[in-house]
Write a protein that binds this DNA or RNA. Structure first.
Length: 826
RNA sequence: GGGCAAGUGGUGGAAUGGCAUACACGUUGGACUUAAAAUCCAAUGGCCGUAAGGCCGUGUGGGUUCGACUCCCACCUUGCCCACCA
């Protein structure tokens, strides 16, 4: 037999069957054993696995197998994020049912996963469109409702005119729908929201506990939550005659500039714009302006360097710091959904306010001067001064550094009662309503007064109906069986909510459902406490913000209602890089894909796995290379031949006193490689783990075992067995097969444990030392490993090459780093 | 505008204060072969030199250090995230 395609495919099938027949990968709920939970982000059932999937799952599979060999009780499950728009779009296009379409794709992908030999526990398989799963989505919704975390609000939403649905802010990318790419329009409808903002502070501060998350992901989440500390200031609003008609609050991070306020602007969506200008000469220009802003698409509104526009409201705000009256304006650069929708404008010290003031000839007044420079002149300034400086024109605060003034003035405003220190977040509440069929129905009905009422828990799940028509808005509205809800107690019929949930709801808690897939409760608390958190989570960077933020929020919510003790779902996070072909991301639309199936047919899954792991660190982009995968096969082939041609079972024990220097060297390399591979796999440096196995293999090739040399044969056997064990998580099928040829005691190599190494065996008696002169490499000398500094200096000076550069009277300093190098400074 | 990450041979990459380019791919030469493939062996950063050897070299410019790809400062380039966020 040799390591060729025909044999490889036979071996793969053989071992996949043995694993399955013995239920080798089923996680046991044995809470006495140390656990390890490995999870990959469950996929959307898109059709076939692509290289990105293969890379993602290979990484997880290696870690799962490695931890199993180390004796951990490993949970390694798989499932599908199977609700979502594509199934519904396909249903419209092909006149099929979303369920059939989705399940056909799921089946294809599961078959491929099995073909690759991924060691999932299929007894814990789940998918979000099953009634057993989405029932708990509805249950969670009810619990959140009861905790006051769910509310309905009429609001301007992002409307995707191609997918005919509302999009969350997060699903709008550069003003376009994340799936359809259509320019998003604005519409106003009643929507369901989840108050994730209640958890903003904890979601932010707990990021500091996630030591094993990439800094990049944490910083993206921090940006997204967008915490700002500042001050809320209340202004009296007066009409032209000075009569108080109302109040307005503004948020600022610059309380130090409060004496420089020259006007106040409201966002165009602010309801007070119309109210305050009503029945005055300002009403019509204000209305025109608001209409103009409303007409703009998101793209236009967000365009960079956007011209600032506005118009006066005809009313005034009284600056509570100095009692001065300043005009109120409506402007396109104020945002309704951040802060209060109203901004105090300080033209001298904010670039946006400055530009606006210049355009509309509003006054500018300086309250901060630069340190150690001439005072600013408000009339000749060409841009706002935004740096730290010295306070001026600010009464008792004059002369104070503007940095210190921030706190002092905020405190002063608090004492005077018109300001209060506040924290705001950019994070917004989560809009979960979707006017779509293929998602979880929201468990609500409306009473005769139109007030929302909860569907009782015992009636869950609210099932998706089958009598629906696609292609006419929200399909659920076409189902008579669905829209009418009959209260079992009163027998009365009510209208049912037809919105479904954002599919991010499904994926926010699936990881904890794997810990206990029972049908009585969402999950058992003790099992969840045992398995959680996920020790290693693996997925794409595209989920760095939303999915991971929502998941963190859900677990904190579960904790708060007593379902689980953990606060963070994912202990360690790995965001794997993309797979590229000639520098571009592989994509169907570009036609530059390498089909995993083709590679599997040619080289088998072990070679594919080896290539993917070896070609780049897991977080980096991976450039596909047809030649390099052959290199991976070549390496596996050499190990195969090592067992076929050189391994030979010997009953005798190794006798250390019979070992010569070469034997000891191989034995040392064997121990060293075990140490290196163990460390590398623990920190997922698969590429260097493989390279150290290659180095060991190169050394084995040079190690000669003459006919009948018993000691050398035993040494060879030992190193061969170790290399197979170390390789087993990476190339599992071939290693199982070879292990059986090498004196296995168990039916699977996984049950034989992970090889250990002897720290003492790593020591060398004689080492090669680098000798530098003035930091430049000049020679290498062999010295006893335990030499003293004086001995090393003496030995080094005896070296011819060293003598060329050093005369003993010129030595200023001698540096000796034991085991590494010696350096003469002359 | 703010934040984060990265920049090393022909290519993927290794080394995170101590031999720069491990390991692999590719290329070239050789062995084996009637031949090819496969396999095995050798060479492979640049410049100078017949050679021994020397000099230069990790985006750029400074700095710290006996010693810097690695640490510090400034800049350039690329990628990603956020962004009229008050």
């Amino acid at each position: 037999m040799s390591y060729i395609t025909e044999e490889i495919l036979k071996i793969e099938k053989k071992w996949q069957k043995i694993w399955e027949d013995n239920k080798l990968f089923q996680a046991q709920n044995d809470t006495a054993k140390p656990k390890y939970y490995v999870l990959e982000m469950y996929p959307y059932p898109s059709g076939k696995l692509h290289m990105g999937h293969v890379r993602n799952y290979t990484i997880g599979d290696v870690l799962a197998r490695f931890r199993r060999m180390q004796g951990f009780n490993v949970l390694y499950p798989m499932g599908f994020d199977s609700f979502g728009l594509p199934a519904e779009n396909a249903a419209i296009k092909n006149k099929t049912n979303p369920k059939e379409w989705t399940e056909a794709r799921m089946n294809d992908m599961v078959a491929q996963m099995k073909q690759i030999g991924l060691s999932y526990d299929w007894s814990r398989f789940l998918y979000s469109h099953s009634e057993d799963y989405y029932k708990w989505n509805q249950w969670i919704f009810l619990q959140m409702y009861k905790q006051g975390l769910v509310y309905k609000k009429k609001s301007v939403v992002n409307w995707d005119p191609i997918d005919n649905t509302v999009l969350a802010n997060e699903q709008v990318i550069d003003g376009k729908g994340w799936r359809s790419g259509a320019v998003v329009e604005k519409r106003e409808i009643e929507q369901w929201f989840i108050k994730i903002t209640d958890y903003a502070e904890e979601l932010l501060s707990d990021l500091d506990k996630l030591d094993d998350w990439p800094e990049r992901v944490k910083s993206m989440q921090r940006n997204w939550i967008g915490k700002s500390e500042g001050c809320m200031i209340t202004f009296d609003v007066v009409d032209g005659t000075g009569k108080k008609i109302d109040e307005i609050k503004t948020f600022t991070t610059r309380p130090d500039t409060v004496f420089g306020i020259k006007y106040v602007v409201l966002a165009a969506e602010h309801p007070k714009c119309i109210e305050w200008s009503k029945s005055t000469e300002y009403e019509s220009p204000v209305k025109d302006f608001i209409a103009d802003v409303a007409k703009e698409t998101l793209i236009e509104r967000m365009a960079e360097g956007k011209e600032k526009n506005g118009t006066a409201l005809g009313v005034f705000a009284v600056n509570p710091a100095n009692g001065k009256k300043v005009p109120l304006w409506v402007a396109n650069y104020a945002l309704m959904d951040y802060g209060t929708g109203a901004v105090m404008a300080v033209p001298a010290h904010d670039q946006r306010d400055f530009e606006f003031a210049k355009k509309y000839q509003l006054p500018v007044s300086v309250v901060i001067n630069p340190k150690d420079q001439d005072a600013l002149n408000a009339d000749t300034m060409s841009e706002a001064f935004v740096e730290v400086g010295i306070m001026t024109n600010s009464k008792e605060f004059d002369g104070v550094s503007s940095d210190d003034a921030k706190l002092k003035m905020a405190q002063w405003m608090e004492e005077k009662g018109f300001g209060s220190r506040t924290t705001t977040y950019r994070l917004k509440d989560w809009l979960i309503s979707r006017q779509r069929y293929w998602g979880t129905p929201i468990p609500i009905y409306y009473d005769d007064d139109g007030n929302p009422q909860l569907i009782p828990e015992e009636e869950l799940p609210v099932k998706l109906p089958k009598d629906v028509e696609f292609g006419k808005g929200n399909p659920l509205e076409t189902s008579q069986t669905f829209i009418n809800y009959t209260d079992p107690k009163s027998g009365k019929t009510y209208r049912r909510e037809t919105d479904t949930m954002d599919t991010f709801f499904d994926s926010s808690w699936y990881y904890i459902r794997y810990t206990d897939l029972n049908d009585k409760c969402i999950f058992d608390k003790s099992l969840a406490n045992y398995w959680m958190p996920v020790d290693q989570y693996i997925g794409g960077i595209e989920h760095a913000i939303l999915h991971l933020l929502y998941s963190r929020f859900f677990l904190k919510f579960f904790r708060d209602i007593g379902l689980v003790d953990e606060s963070e779902p994912f202990k360690r996070l790995l965001t794997q890089g993309m797979v590229l072909l000639s520098g571009e991301v592989m994509s169907k639309s570009k036609g530059n894909i390498v089909d995993p199936d083709e590679i599997l047919k040619k080289f088998g899954t072990d070679s594919l796995r080896m290539f993917i792991l070896f070609a780049a660190p897991p977080e980096d982009q991976l450039e596909w290379n047809d030649d390099a995968i052959e290199g991976s096969w070549r390496f596996l082939s050499r190990i195969w031949k090592l067992v076929e041609h050189r391994f030979s079972i010997v009953e005798d024990e190794l006798n250390v006193s019979d070992m010569d220097d070469q034997d000891k060297e191989i034995e040392r390399e064997r121990n060293f490689t075990i140490k290196k591979v163990t460390e590398d796999l623990s920190s997922y440096k698969f590429n260097t783990a493989i390279s150290s196995l290659m180095i060991l293999m190169n050394k084995i090739d040079k190690y000669k075992v003459p006919e009948g040399a018993l000691t050398k044969q035993i040494v060879l056997n030992n190193v061969t067995r170790s290399i197979i064990q170390l390789l087993a998580p990476l190339a599992p099928h071939m290693c199982e097969e070879l292990w059986q040829k090498c004196g296995a005691t168990q039916y699977s190599i996984i049950l034989e444990g992970w090889p250990s190494y002897d720290e003492a065996a790593l020591k060398q008696d004689v080492i090669e030392l680098i000798v530098q002169v003035n930091g430049k490499l000049r020679s290498r000398i062999s010295i006893p490993a335990d030499s003293s500094k004086e001995d090393v200096q003496r030995l080094a000076l005896e070296d011819e090459k060293v003598q060329q550069f050093v005369s003993s009277d010129a030595i200023k300093k001698f540096i000796y780093v034991p085991g590494k190098l010696a350096n003469f400074v002359v």
